[in-house]
Every structure is written in C-alpha cells, then in structure tokens.
C-alpha cells in the first residue's frame, strides 16, 4: 500500500472532532498544575512544616514516573473499585460506563502538578534574597511579600518554561489512547481502521498537534514580548 495524501483529509476531520478532548486534557491539567504546583513550590522553598519535608521526598519520586504510568495506574485505581461497586450501586455503573476522560484528567493533573511545581521552584529561586528582605524591612509579612513582590517576579522567570510545560502536556496527552480515551490521535487512528491508512492518519493527527503547539508557542511569545515591555524590564538587578 503506497502513501496517498487524499486519505489524510478524512482522518483530519476525525481528529478534529476530538480536538476538544485533547484541549481539555492539556489545558485543564495545566491550570490544576499551576494552582497546586505553585503552593507546592512555595511550601518546599520555605521548608517550614512537615508537609514541606514530605513534599521534598514525594515530588522527586513522582517526577520519575512517566505519564503513561499515571494514566494506567489511575485507570486501574479508579475503575477497579467502580467495577465492584457497580454490582450494588447504579451510579457506580454509570460512572464506569462514562467517557474515561476524567481518568485522563486526574492522571494528567498529577503529572502537571509535579512538573509545574518544579518550574515554579526554580523560578522562585531566581528572585534574589534582597527582594524578600526589602519586603520585610517595610513591614510586609511573608505572605504579603510572596503575593506582592516575589511571585509576580517569579512568574516573569517562569513564563517561558510554563509555555514549554503546556506544549509538553499537549503532546503528552496523546498517551491517553492506552486506556481508550478518544482524543485527537486515537480518533484519527480509529478512522483509519476501516481502510488501514494508518500512516495518513498519523500525519493528520501530527498536523493537528503541530498547529496547537505552534499556536500556544506563538501566544507565549506574544505574552513574553508584552511582559518585556513592562515588568520583565525590571528583572535585571
């Protein structure tokens, strides 16, 4: 069977029909990751309580787990109990038959939290000690210092890395096909099952990923430019 570009089109349409799944998986997990990863990073930076020590042990371990394993593990951990429960409860049965996207969301959110907490940790350490001391010297509390001075500056350092983090999540989200979630890749692949035009289907989904990532990269570049005109200018000292 030779390559035939005309088969790309139907696969592309199939891929685009599941575009929202890929977008939800990557952007929701990114938001969760930012929301949870930032406090994790802050807690680890100040290592003030036992939680920060626990996180200091936990995060490096979780960092070494590939995304595909999170997906498989959560698939197992969530579905197994539901299987048992569904014998007694209708809602469990309903949940079990539901679209598995929520499993992908949980798995990807954990992975994103770990990834983004590391991004924020290194961004936090790019802010000099003098900035904290200036805050304290005018009477700000630690939290006020973080909110008003340190985090805004850390975000400037973090922005380009966060942009790369989103792109990793978008590409990484394609792994959810292992548990049968219908995202861009899986949908394109399935569309090829009738005619065995897999190569064309792969190319179609690659195109979709490429366009999303290029768009995100472009938005990131634009935001950086805008920041560079204001706050980031001050990042020197």
């Amino acid at each position: 069977m030779t390559f035939d570009a005309s088969y790309i089109w139907p696969s592309l349409i199939a891929a685009l029909q599941c575009l929202h799944v890929t977008l939800i998986l990557s952007f929701v997990s990114f938001c969760v990751g930012l929301l949870l990863g930032t406090p994790v990073a802050v807690s680890r930076k100040f290592h003030a309580t036992w939680t920060s020590y626990a996180l200091g042990v936990l995060i490096p371990i979780l960092k070494g787990v590939p995304l595909v394993l999170y997906v498989l593990m959560f698939n197992f951990a969530i579905l197994k109990p539901l299987d048992a429960l569904s014998e007694y409860y209708a809602w469990a049965d309903g949940l079990r038959r539901m679209d598995k996207i929520y499993i992908g969301l949980v798995a990807m959110s954990v992975s994103a939290t770990v990834m983004i907490s590391e991004t924020m940790r290194s961004a936090l350490s790019s802010v000099s000690e003098g900035q904290y001391e200036a805050c304290f010297s005018v009477g700000l509390t630690k939290w006020q210092a973080l909110r008003r001075v340190v985090l805004p500056q850390a975000m400037v350092f973090a922005a380009p890395v966060l942009c790369n983090n989103i792109i990793s999540l978008i590409k990484g989200s394609s792994i959810v096909f292992v548990v049968g979630i219908m995202d861009v890749l899986n949908s394109a692949k399935t569309s090829a099952q009738i005619n065995y035009r897999f190569l064309e289907a792969y190319i179609a989904s690659a195109l979709v990923y490429w366009v999303i990532c290029a768009t995100v990269g472009r938005i990131g570049w634009f935001l950086e430019k805008r920041q560079a005109r204001g706050v980031a200018k001050a990042g020197g000292a």
Binding site: Q131, E133, C135, F136, S137, P152, A237
Partner: peptide, 16 residues
C-alpha cells in the same frame, strides 16, 4: 519592622 526602615547597600528596590 513596622517601626523601623532599612536602606540597603544594594538598594533592593522591588523589581516588579
């Protein structure tokens, strides 16, 4: 700290 203020050798203005 709210009764005192400090001027540092390296200025330490809030960069943002």
């Amino acid at each position: 700290r709210r009764r005192t203020a400090m001027v540092f050798q390296s200025y330490n203005l809030f960069n943002n």
